[in-house]
């Protein structure tokens, strides 16, 4: 089974995000790029399938300076190949990303494409279904379970709904699955191994240029005004705990 994992970088939410002076994009200088956490689950699920059934895993990401580390990390975790598609700096719309991935993947052999169910910046929809439709293959999103059939011609997947209800689908391969959660916590790659690969291995680059458009015009970005904000409880942890207990007591929320 040949599995492709389609990955993208997103701004790290641990950092304070700043809006550019133009008002409709993020200040690139204030952004640290990290791998989309759901793509990490997609990679883990791919590696688990490979561990169980054999085959190969290739990780693909849109080319940028920041993406190298994510691709070397994928290799360190057990991916057989890591490929950079074109040159894309900064945020890329999902439609443009899907277009570039579709062009790159068009000439490849594969049975299954896994990607993260969503990303924190995919304003114009999720890459998985866009890519699948572009490639004219089926897709299922919000997938929490993947089982390959005995003849490796289809997969049985679970799609998750509100309240924990699942739908079971049988999907002909090749297909794109948007992974919500891998069967196991994404594995850890030792930093030393990633560094070693960065020195020794090289990433394959596939030509590609931005093409297509989201069809959206972002007028402005803004920090949402919320209906309210929590009343902040000051003091060290002990003092804060004391104040919380007082609040709970006043409201009759302590056990009688």
């Amino acid at each position: 089974m040949k599995i492709l994992v389609v990955m993208k970088q997103v701004p790290d939410l641990a950092d304070e995000l700043e809006i550019s002076d133009d008002g409709n994009s993020l200040d690139p200088d204030a952004v640290t790029w990290v791998l989309n956490e759901f793509d990490d689950h997609a990679l883990e699920e791919a590696l688990q399938l490979k561990d169980a059934l054999g085959g190969s895993v290739a990780a693909l990401a849109l080319g940028s300076e920041a993406v190298d580390k994510a691709l070397f990390t994928a290799l360190a975790k057990g991916a057989d190949e890591a490929k950079k598609v074109g040159e894309f700096e900064g945020g890329v719309s999902s439609h443009v990303a899907a277009e570039a991935f579709a062009a790159a993947i068009g000439g490849m052999e594969y049975d299954l494409i896994l990607t993260g169910v969503q990303a924190i910046d995919d304003l114009d929809g999720q890459v998985g279904p866009l890519l699948a439709t572009k490639l004219e293959i089926p897709h299922v999103s919000v997938v929490t379970h993947v089982e390959v059939s005995g003849d490796a011609k289809s997969v049985t997947v679970h799609q998750e709904y509100a309240g924990g209800v699942l739908a079971e689908f049988e999907v002909d391969l090749p297909a794109v699955l948007g992974i919500q959660a891998a069967r196991a916590t994404p594995r850890y790659a030792p930093v030393s191994r990633v560094r070693q690969l960065q020195k020794e291995a090289s990433l394959e680059t596939i030509d590609g240029a931005p093409s297509g458009t989201s069809g959206l015009e972002v007028e402005r970005l803004f920090v949402p005004e919320t209906g309210g904000h929590a009343e902040m409880i000051e003091g060290d942890e002990d003092e804060a705990a004391e104040k919380i207990v007082n609040i709970l007591e006043e409201r009759g929320l302590l056990p009688k």
Binding site: G125, G128, P129, L130, T133, Q159, Y161, G178, G215, L216
Partner: peptide
């Protein structure tokens, strides 16, 4: 899950922009 799958699929298939 239903909306995400169908909206993005339609966006590509029917060439309509999608705001998520």
């Amino acid at each position: 899950a239903v909306g995400m799958d169908v909206a993005a699929g339609l966006s590509q298939a029917a060439d309509l922009p999608l705001a998520a």
